[in-house]
Simulated assay, not measured.
Amino acid sequence: MFRKVLFPVVLTHKMENYLSCISDMVKAGVEQVDLMHVVDLHDTYGDPKIVEFAQETLAKWKESLMKAGVAKVETYLEEGEPTEEILRRLDEEDYSFVMLGSRGTSLFKRLFLGSVAENVLHYARQPVLLLKSYPCEEGGKATYSLTCGSVFEKILYVTDLSEGAEKALPYLEKMKDIPGATLDILHVHDTRAMEYMSTEKIQEISAEEKRRIEQMRKNLADKGFVVEAHIVEDHPVAGILKYAEEKKPSLLVIGAKGKSKLLEMVLGSVTETIIHKAPCSVFVIR
């Protein structure tokens, strides 16, 4: 489930923030990390010094990951269009998920929307772990840090009780092996759907949702997770973001939904909005 990970990287020191997350992933079962950098010829004009710098950086980061306990680390340096090369490798190899780095709220729309990460999120067949970092100041100089010391420390799993959302459960079960990890399950009872229902029907649906959420909580608790479950009534996006702002999770886990047979990997509107506005890293499960 967490065995083999693809991590496309850009060559900045900010990427080193994300390498620290790998040690947690090893505890959850990650055995191999493939570091990949794509030299975009449109930006570099084939400058050999850039290729040399990329090789040196990938080698340094490989050594860092090996020291963090990753059993196997491969590096790939490609030339071409980044999105195409990343999606090609995802199609050719059997990856458990792909990990992407981004920056936080103030820069997020400018750097992420329409970017390589955006395209990978939409079209990759695999789950996508989107790591967010935010501008901060340490020792009088500007830097970037992850939203939390450990990405898997405080997990929020959002479910609409659909088949797509339940695909996340096996991943959650593996996260329980990370020391100190806790889990909140959140279901938002969509108030829009209740406008034209009878009181009896609303009560019936609410009772069934409570039963399923409690059973889910119990199953995960039985497997060793420290877990709580909550149901709120709200618009899905507003309810999820409000809860996340209040509870401040380190990771939000959510399912992706396809919109059509033609574009099976296009994200559903709720999922896409949450990805862009969540105040923490996001794991999108397919």
Rank of each mutant, 00 (worst) to 15 (best):
K247D: 10
L77Q: 14
P279K: 08
K277S: 07
E195V: 14
F108S: 04
T191R: 07
M1V: 07
K248S: 14
D160G: 06
K248H: 14
V38A: 09
K201H: 11
T57A: 11
N219Y: 04
V38Q: 06
V237M: 09
I155A: 11
L90D: 04
T273S: 10
S269D: 11
E16P: 03
L107W: 08
H235Q: 11
L77N: 05
T75D: 01
T75F: 03
T12V: 04
A142I: 14
A142K: 13
L113C: 12
E233F: 08
Y95D: 12
L11Q: 01
I275A: 11
S206L: 13
Y196N: 13
D24V: 12
E195P: 03
P249C: 01
I240G: 04
I185L: 05
A59W: 03
Q215K: 11
V73I: 02
N17C: 07
R89S: 10
Y243A: 10
K257W: 10
Y76F: 13
W61D: 07
S162V: 06
T83V: 12
D91V: 07
E81W: 09
V158N: 04
K72Y: 01
K277E: 07
D160Q: 04
E200Y: 15
I213Y: 02
G164V: 06
G29C: 09
I86T: 10
V5G: 00
L263P: 01
F7M: 05
T83M: 10
V128M: 00
G101A: 11
S115K: 05
V270S: 07
S96D: 06
E85P: 05
L90S: 06
K218Q: 13
K72G: 03
L156F: 13
G80Q: 13
S250R: 01
I185S: 00
E214R: 07
Y123K: 15
F225I: 14
D177Q: 08
E79H: 10
S150I: 00
L241K: 07
E195A: 12
A117Q: 04
E74M: 01
